[in-house]
Design a protein around this nucleic acid. Structure first.
Lengths: 116, 116
DNA sequence: CTTAAACATCGACAAGTGTAAATATTTACG
DNA sequence: CGTAAATATTTACACTTGTCGATGTTTAAG
C-alpha cells in the first residue's frame, strides 16, 4: 500500500469512530480534514463551492461573499485544497474550485457511522 | 425559540453543506464541534469513549491511553464536553464520559448529506 | 512590449492553542 | 478528624493560526 493516500483512502481506512478506538496514525490522517473545516470562513467557503451551480465556483465569486482581503480567501482555499477537500482548476485568468464530495461523505461516514 | 441550543439543534438547524450556502451564524454554531474534533488527542479520546463498552469511559481509563499529563487529558475532555460531544457524570471519586452519538450523527449528516 | 486583471506568495503581527507543573477540590476510608 | 486518590483549575510558555499589506506570477488584451 502506498504511503501517499488520497483523502478518500485516508477516511476509508478507518472504522467509524464509535466502532473501535482510532489509532494515533489514523487520527493524524483525519485531523487535517477536521481542522480545515474547523474555521467559520473555510466552512462557509466549502459550503459555497459545494452548493454552487455546476458544483464549482470561481475565486472571484468567493471573494465577494466575505469582507476579507483577497489574500486571506486565497489562503483559506489553499488550506481546503491541501486537505483534499477542494479540487483546483485554472481556466485562463480564473481559478475554479470544486468540492470533493467523496471526501466529505467519507468523513461523514467516519464521524457518524453507527455500529448497527 | 431559545438562544441556548443543544448540539443536536445546532447541527439540525442547517441544511447539508452541499445544499445551500451556510450563513455566518450557522457556520459559527458548527465550527466548535469541528474544532473540538480537529485535534488528534481529542479525536482519539472521542473514539475511545464512543467505542468503549457501555458507551462510557472513566477518566482513569483514558489517561492511561496517552503519554500525556493528567491535566492535559482533563483539558481535552473539557473541550469535548463544552462542545456538546461528551456527557459528563460523576460517580464517587470517578468521572465517566459518554459520547453524544446524536451530536456525532447530526454533524455527519451536515457534512456528508447529499442532495440526492 | 505595456498594461490591467485574477490569483498566489511572502512577511509580520496579534490572538488562539496544546502542554505541563503546581495547586485546588472532591470523595472515600480509617 | 487526617490521609490518599481521582479529577479539575490555574498559570505560564512555546507554538500555531488568521489576517492584512506588499509584492510576485500568470494570462489576456491593446
Amino acid at each position: 500500500m502506498s504511503l501517499e493516500l488520497t483523502p478518500v483512502q485516508t477516511v476509508a481506512c478507518c472504522s467509524p469512530l464509535s466502532r473501535e478506538p482510532l489509532s494515533e496514525s489514523e487520527a493524524e490522517g483525519i485531523v487535517p480534514l477536521l481542522k480545515a473545516l474547523g474555521d467559520p470562513v473555510r466552512l462557509r467557503l466549502m459550503s459555497l463551492v459545494a452548493s454552487h451551480e455546476g458544483g464549482e465556483a470561481c475565486v472571484c465569486d468567493l471573494n465577494d461573499a466575505f469582507e476579507l482581503s483577497q489574500p486571506t480567501i486565497s489562503h483559506h482555499l489553499k488550506v481546503l485544497h491541501e486537505a483534499g477537500l477542494l479540487e483546483r482548476e485554472k481556466r485562463g485568468v480564473w481559478v475554479y474550485y470544486r468540492a470533493r464530495t467523496d471526501a466529505l461523505s467519507g468523513l461523514a461516514a467516519l464521524i457518524g457511522g453507527q455500529v448497527q
